[in-house]
């Protein structure tokens, strides 16, 4: 082992893996999806027209469900899950536990505040639909609705991107070797959020909203592909050990072809496989987004 280390392509190869496995991959995927859909919903609420409100509601509901699943995933992944609250409250003093220079510490506050505001936005949306008492509709109207939408928009982007910062603030191969992971996760999160909104909003919401979400997905997929190319081009001698095997195949086939190129083709030719082209493309984007997290997390974990 020491002989191999002596020829390691980067100082990051001397470290131990934190063993962040499939639970963290699922969380990174769902967190990105939640952040992306809340960002898009906030955009529609703040800068769209009244007809966009139905799609915005879909975005908030998706974000709420995704973040509700994310929380337990994060807790279960801890080796001492009963101590999850130590990240929020200092166990010795009872004070707030905030370390601005620790991405996980900042991230846990982003997740908590995001969950709160998406919950409020969803309450307003449910009241609008008559599912809960009318009083809660105030959360979706007037200045209060705008404030909640703006917070969801900003926290959504932070949630989609901070997980890249968590990986960067290590000394692990790939994560610490490339500065592009945060941007890649942010773009992929917005793309996944758009795809989920297309699946659940397709045929039920305003056609103009669907068209805008569709265009946002196209743009973010293209940018995501560009960033992936930059990462691969700048990894140099790390490329072989990281992506020379099965993870390289998953990246090319699962992320690039199935998760990006085929959906782009379907978005470009919406009648290619009949009326289901757009939802099919969106479903493939979700698969690609999940596989992207798996490749980024697990290809480094295996070294």
């Amino acid at each position: 082992m020491l002989e191999l280390l002596a020829q390691a392509p980067s100082d990051t190869f001397f470290t131990h893996s934190p063993e962040w496995g499939w639970l963290i991959v699922f969380y990174f995927f769902l967190g990105g999806l939640a952040g992306g859909s809340a960002f898009l919903a906030g955009m529609l609420d703040l800068f769209g027209v009244a007809a966009d409100r139905s799609m915005a509601r879909v975005g908030y509901f998706i974000a709420l469900v995704a973040i509700a699943i994310s929380g337990p995933l994060l807790i279960i992944d801890l080796n001492r899950p009963e101590r999850f609250w130590h990240m929020l409250i200092q166990s010795e003093t009872g004070g707030l536990m905030v370390k601005w220079y620790s991405p996980i510490s900042i991230g846990i506050w982003i997740v908590s505040l995001f969950a709160l505001f998406v919950f409020l936005a969803s309450l307003g949306a449910l009241a609008e639909l008559g599912k809960i008492p009318e009083a809660s509709a105030a959360l979706a109207r007037g200045w209060l609705g705008k404030v909640i939408a703006a917070v969801c928009l900003i926290l959504g982007l932070m949630l989609a991107g901070y997980t890249g910062g968590v990986l960067a603030a290590t000394n692990r191969p790939l994560w610490a070797d490339s500065p592009w992971i945060g941007l890649l996760f942010l773009l992929s999160g917005v793309s996944a959020g758009a795809a989920a909104m297309l699946i659940f909003g397709w045929g039920r919401t305003n056609a103009g909203s669907v068209a805008w979400i569709d265009r946002m997905d196209i743009w973010t997929i293209l940018l995501e592909l560009l960033v992936l190319i930059v990462i691969a081009a700048t990894l140099g001698s790390l490329l072989g050990p990281l992506w020379g095997g099965v993870w390289g195949i998953v990246l090319v086939v699962g992320v690039v072809v199935i998760g990006a190129l085929i959906p782009l083709l379907f978005y470009w030719r919406p009648r290619l496989v009949g009326r289901w082209s757009i939802p099919t493309a969106a479903a493939l984007v979700l698969i690609g987004s999940f596989l992207l997290r798996a490749v980024i997390v697990l290809s480094s974990e295996r070294i």
């Binding site: 470290t15 992944d77 968590v166």
Partner: peptide, 17 residues
């Protein structure tokens, strides 16, 4: 008695300690 096993420190240590 404070650590909750998030394992962030494991990947952060440049020496694999």
């Amino acid at each position: 008695d404070v650590c909750n096993g998030c394992r962030d420190c494991i990947g952060a240590c440049p020496f694999g300690v």
